[in-house]
Structures are given as structure tokens and as C-alpha cells.
Write a protein that binds this DNA or RNA. Structure first.
Lengths: 338, 338
DNA sequence: GTGAAAGCGCTAACAG
DNA sequence: CTGTTAGCGCTTTCAC
């Protein structure tokens, strides 16, 4: 456990110089710097992040708060963020706000209050005003991903536009009876995401001169299982079966594909199905979808934070900016049966 | 940002007493403690983890190293670990060793060397001997989950036994031509897990007087997609089609179910399918499986670490112990067609 | 460009 | 049971 002092001795300089040489902060002559770097690696020296943090106030650590871990969207965002952070020399401390009660309070007491992080990224999580306020009070940047947090810089896709696009794709193929599987109310608590998607769907319909039919809406929980059950409900009716389903997530769309099969329907001949996400499995199921790019969202969140944490001449990110998405047409959508 | 000193003043005690009262270490009279706690919360005081760590040498932070994030098994283990750690007042810093090259070195330079963590949990990841040695050299406990790391305390299920159990289930139903979808060689690099599962499968076969047939083995990559393709291969043969498939993961088993359907085969009438994992989706697909309990594995890993980090009279965990598993019979397995 | 020295905020002996 | 007193290992003014 070599310390800075030993490095200084070996390099024949002061500890201050070692610190400067190794951190890049402040000016050190090239020769000196080289000597220091050499001495450091010779001794296997590495700075103690604690001592460094204590003295400097920087933690080089970002807190990431998520509601779930084993959902494709979340783990993808995290992956993107983590990789990007690593590149910046930051660590990523993970907080899973699964249990909404004590766990959640506990998280805030824990890391907010223990100042373990320089900033926090909240993924698809609606923080309370008090939580936001407290974070801001202690000067911690906070960026949201996946939905608007009042008063907070947020990265999000335009859910309404995405939903409109998906619906328009179906409309363009000639579908008129288009069902929608969206989030149920419980999910709307966080983020109005389902609502926005439903809105986009209805907007597209109306623009095409179609009155949205409440019977063509089914709520589900964003999972394959949920989509399956919702789709069975939608497709099981004897008359006026929808010719297409627009699901608010790929997992629900996949569930819908499976449901259609189980009902003896052929996709896309009998029913077209489109999702949202660009899930790993969408390709496998031949699912048409509107991709959003969660890994990129994680990276972008980090870029936003870095702009604040380490202001450089050239900001890397634009916050409150709408993120890209892309319609991917595969084999689950086609013209309706005539 | 109230400091310990202000709390001490408000409570009318010394900073040392505040520290003791708040951390629980050392004895403080109940009255004093109450006063301190009150003063602390009145001031909104929270310890600075840096200062605390620097002075005490404890980080209250565990590093978790994983090869993937968006795979059910890994995110589940992490979830379990994180929740358990939170309860112990520890944070969880996540390191994704996705890219095996620079990323990996970088991780080790970063956190190993920056002493940000008290210990590390390696999930299904074969650390190099040098990595293990270095960790041990600086006295960091290290526990493996999901496969044996030489010289390291490891939590794992008995993969051979699980595979044997799954195969015996099929045998017991009367199957004789049982195919196996296992990991391909690439995956065997980490952990011999596929090999062990294949071994268990063959052991069961041999015990039943059946000679394992290499044509009944197909490698895949543990994903739904991979399982699908492997199963098509296995089930597509015109003669002597296997009557059952044992897949080394639920995702591959699900892929197999989908492949069977696409080939016009009815599960389990024409072919029985069993997996390993107890995946979230296994219930949905009616998949028979041998559950292992990844969340519990994460929790157990934490318990092992806590025993070392905060030795108490009663050890909570037994290391190098085989973890529980359970055969769950659902509707994907039945007697073979006669 | 480099060194000296004063902390960063807390914990852990050691006394009392 | 509680107070005093050294540091923990680094960063950062401030001089030079």
C-alpha cells in the first residue's frame, strides 16, 4: 500500500507535485511528470479515493436509481451509463428502489445523505418534489432518463410521436381497426409514459378520420405475460376483431404474437403487431417496432452529467433534448386481410 | 451541510461521543445517545462517508463484477445482493466486464486499486489468478457466485446434480431419446458450467443404460434465439427424432418450445422440454425446469461477505456450500408418444 | 513550475 | 461512559 509520500520520495519531489502530476490538475513540467508517473507505477501506487475525495470534494461516483433491474430497458440504460462512466473514470453505484416504502427512504438517507455520489441518474422514476429539492439543496446534479421529473433535466424520447409513428405505420398499411395495449393505471404513476403513448395512438387515429374505440384498448403491465393476456382479450372477440395491435412495449408485442398463434391466427396475415423498444428479442420474433436506444440514453445521461461536473469548453450533451428513435419494419406487420 | 462538530455542540457532548452514538460502535448512555440523535436530525446531519472511510478504513461498499447485465440470471443475483447490502448499510458498485480487454484491466486498476470497495462479488466470471492474488494481497474478501474460482470462496449450485435431476425426470417419464442443448465451447471458458451440466445429463443416461449419442447434443449460447436454432436442428431430423430435450437454460428451453411449435410439433405430446433456471418466463411458457434461486444466491454472497467484514458471534452463511435447487414440473414434459 | 503546510470531516486509541 | 488528541492520505492555496 504505497502512499503518495513514498512516491514523492522516489521521484525526488514533493507530495504536492505528485498529486498534480497524477491528477493532471495544475502545471507540472513534462520531465517531472514523467519521473512521478514512473515512480508511481514502480511502487504500484494508486490514489486512495477516500482521501482524495475528502480533500477535494469530488467523489468520482454517480448514483443510479432504478425501479427494476431485470427488465431489458433498465439494464440496457445502466449498461450504457456504466460503460460511459468507466471511460470518464467514474464509478456507478446502483440503487434499486424496488420496494417503494422503507427501501426508498433508506436509499435517500443512505447515499444522498452520505454524500457518496457526485450526481444521480434517475431512470424512469418519479422522484418526489422533496427528494428533488434535497438533492438540489446539496448541489447534486440530477438527471432523469425516460420520463419528465418536474424541475429536473430529463432525457426522453417523444413517446407520443413514437406511438403516432407506430400507429401511422399500421394505418399506412391499410388497417382501420387497430387495437392498443398500453400501461395500466398503476404504471402511469411513474411518468405518464403509457398515457403519452396512448395519446399518440389516438392522435394518429383521429388524424386518419378514425374515432378511437375504447373497446380496442387493453391495459397490461409491460411484460410478455401481460401482453399475451391482453391480446387474447382483444383478439378473442367473435366479431370485428382488430386487424392490428399496437403494443406500448416490445415485450407486450411479443406476448401478443404468442397469443395470436395460440388463437390460430397467423401474424401478419390475420393480424399485424407492432411494439416499441427495439428489444433484443424483437428481431428473433420478426417484430416490427419503433426502436429507442436505451444504451445510448444511458450514455447521454452521463454526457449531460459530465458537462456539469467537469465543465469543458465543449459541452457534449444537450439536455431536455428529445432522443432519437427509429421505425424498424419486420415481418409482423403487413396489409390487413381484404 | 452540518458537520459532526455542530452536532456535538448542540447535543452538548464531544465529537467522539457523537460518532459513537451515531455509529453504534462503543458504548454511549441511552440519554446521551438520544440527545445526539435528536441534535443530528435537527441539523439534518449525516456522516460524510469519505471522512468516515478515511478514518476507519471501512468503505461500506461492495464491488460487484458481472459479465452481462441484461440477462435474467445476472440481474437477479444483483438484485438480491443489492437489497441485502442495503439492509446492512452497504452500497453496491457495479462493474460490467463486458468488453474483456481494456475494460477489464481498467476495472481492476480502478476499483481494486482505488480501494473503493471492502470486498468484491464476482458473478459467473472467471478471474485470472493474478486478479485473485492482487485482491487477496490487499486483503479484500472475494466471493464467487455461479462457478468455482480457484482459491476463492464460491457459492454455486451443483450443476451436475441439477442436470442429472432434469434428465432423470425425463427418463422417469419413459423417454429414451433425450437430446441436450448445452453451452458451446466459448461459454465453457467461464466456469465449466456447460460441461458440468452435460456431464450430469450423460451420467443420468448411462445410469439408465443409455449410451449418450453425440448427435443428440447441440451447442447454443444460452439465449432464446440460440435455443431455438439448436432445437430446430435437433427436431428437424426426419428419423429418430428425440422425444425430449433437456436445455441447459430456461431461455434455451423456451427457444426450443418455440422451435417445436414452428415445426408443427405439440409440446409435450410430441416432444417434452425441460430447462434449468426458474426463469421469470418459465411459468408463462408452462416450462418444466429445475429452479435455482439467483436472488437468494446474491443474498447468500452478501451473507458470506458480512461474516468476514463484520464478524459477529453467529455466522450467517456457510461458504463453499452447495445452493438449493428444485424441480418444478409444469406442462412441457410428459410421457413420450407410444 | 514547485514546495510547505493547512486542512477535508471523521474515528480510534487512550485517558479519565 | 465520555472527552482529548492524533491522525486517515490526499489536495490545495499560498509563497517562492
Amino acid at each position: 500500500m504505497a502512499g503518495i509520500e513514498e512516491v514523492a520520495k522516489l521521484a525526488g519531489v514533493s507530495t504536492a507535485t505528485v498529486s498534480r502530476a497524477l491528477s493532471g490538475r495544475g502545471h507540472v513540467s513534462p520531465t517531472t511528470k514523467e519521473k512521478v508517473v514512473e515512480a508511481a507505477s514502480a511502487l504500484g501506487y494508486v490514489v486512495s479515493s477516500n482521501a482524495s475525495s475528502l480533500a477535494s470534494g469530488r467523489m468520482r461516483n454517480i448514483g443510479v436509481v432504478v425501479p427494476f433491474l431485470n427488465r431489458w430497458f433498465f439494464s440496457s440504460v445502466i449498461e450504457g451509463a456504466q460503460q460511459s462512466l468507466l471511460r470518464h473514470g467514474y464509478d456507478l453505484t446502483l440503487y434499486n428502489l424496488a420496494g417503494v416504502g422503507d427501501e426508498r427512504r433508506s436509499v435517500f438517507e443512505h447515499f444522498l445523505l452520505r454524500q457518496r455520489v457526485d450526481a444521480v441518474i434517475a431512470i424512469s422514476l418519479e422522484l418526489t418534489e422533496s427528494e428533488v429539492t434535497r438533492l438540489h439543496a446539496i448541489g447534486k446534479p440530477l438527471v432523469g432518463v425516460g420520463g419528465p421529473i418536474p424541475g429536473v433535466q430529463t432525457l426522453m424520447v417523444d413517446d407520443a410521436a413514437i406511438a403516432r409513428l407506430a400507429t401511422e405505420h399500421l394505418l399506412g398499411l391499410g388497417h382501420r381497426r387497430i387495437a392498443h395495449i398500453g400501461g395500466d393505471l398503476e404504471f402511469d404513476l411513474d411518468f405518464h409514459l403509457p398515457t403519452n403513448r396512448r395519446l399518440g395512438y389516438e392522435t394518429a387515429l383521429v388524424a386518419a378520420g378514425i374515432t378511437p374505440d375504447p373497446h380496442l384498448f387493453a391495459p397490461a403491465d409491460f411484460t410478455i405475460r401481460g401482453g399475451y393476456h391482453a391480446a387474447k382479450q382483444l383478439l378473442g372477440v367473435p366479431h370485428e376483431r382488430p386487424t392490428a395491435i399496437f403494443a406500448a412495449s416490445d415485450e407486450m408485442a411479443i406476448g401478443s404474437i404468442l397469443a395470436a398463434r395460440d388463437l390460430g391466427l397467423v401474424v401478419p396475415r390475420d393480424v399485424s403487431i407492432i411494439g416499441i423498444d427495439g428489444h433484443d428479442l424483437s428481431d428473433f420474433f420478426g417484430l416490427s417496432t419503433v426502436s429507442q436506444f436505451p444504451r445510448a440514453q444511458g450514455e447521454e445521461a452521463v454526457a449531460v452529467l459530465m458537462d456539469q461536473l467537469e465543465p469543458s469548453s465543449t459541452p457534449q450533451a444537450a439536455a431536455n433534448q428529445l432522443l432519437p428513435y427509429e421505425l424498424i419494419v419486420r415481418s409482423s406487420t403487413a396489409s390487413p386481410p381484404s
